[in-house]
């Protein structure tokens, strides 16, 4: 593979794509299926990506539309069922204290309960660190819309899990 082989670029993004997809689907297997489908789509449409723009936000957009168009309907019941027990992260090992693990689980559960459009913005900005503008490009909405969705998501999260005293 040469340096500008899309496959090499996508492989280097995989950890971030998997994290985003996991937040979207709430299910590790569905997340990896989604990432694979999204990457194959991206390779087919590689000419549409504009070098110099954020590859991550372009990929998030593909993952999001693939999820909405192709996967969500088939996964919905499963996602609801899984959200009760949001599957244990494979990377967690026995050394992680139980309290931290359950905290992470509670937080993921709270995020899973957010409306999907808020959850996507949260995953892109708060979890992944995209700028508001990049997230707006990825979602195809104005920056103002991104800001209000993020504020609603973060507000609910702060109310649910924020430390108040």
């Amino acid at each position: 593979m040469s340096i500008d082989d899309p496959r090499a670029e996508l492989v280097s993004l995989l950890p971030r794509l998997r994290r985003f997809a996991y937040g979207l689907t709430g299910n590790a297997q569905a997340a990896d299926d989604l990432v694979q489908a999204g990457c194959l789509k991206a390779i087919e449409r590689w000419h549409q990506w504009q070098p110099g723009t954020s590859l991550a936000s372009w990929m998030f957009r593909i993952l999001q539309t693939t999820w909405v168009d192709d996967y969500r309907a088939h996964q919905r019941h499963q996602t609801v069922a899984d959200s009760e027990t949001l599957d244990a992260l494979a990377g967690e090992d026995g050394r992680i204290v139980v309290e931290a693990r359950s905290d992470a689980r509670v937080v993921r559960e709270a995020i899973a309960q957010l409306p999907e459009e808020q959850r996507m913005v949260l995953m892109m900005i708060t979890i992944d660190g995209l700028s508001y503008r990049e997230a707006a490009q990825a979602l195809g909405v104005p920056v103002g819309t991104v800001m209000s969705r993020l504020a609603r998501a973060r507000g609910k999260l702060a109310d649910t899990i924020g430390v108040g005293d």
Partner: peptide
């Protein structure tokens, strides 16, 4: 309110940190 937003953001990132570190 700022503190609540900061801390919930930190918790959100921590909740997905293991996914980022997990081998693909």
């Amino acid at each position: 309110r700022l503190r609540q937003l900061v801390e919930s953001g930190v918790l959100a990132r921590q909740a997905f940190a293991a996914k980022l570190d997990e081998p693909v």
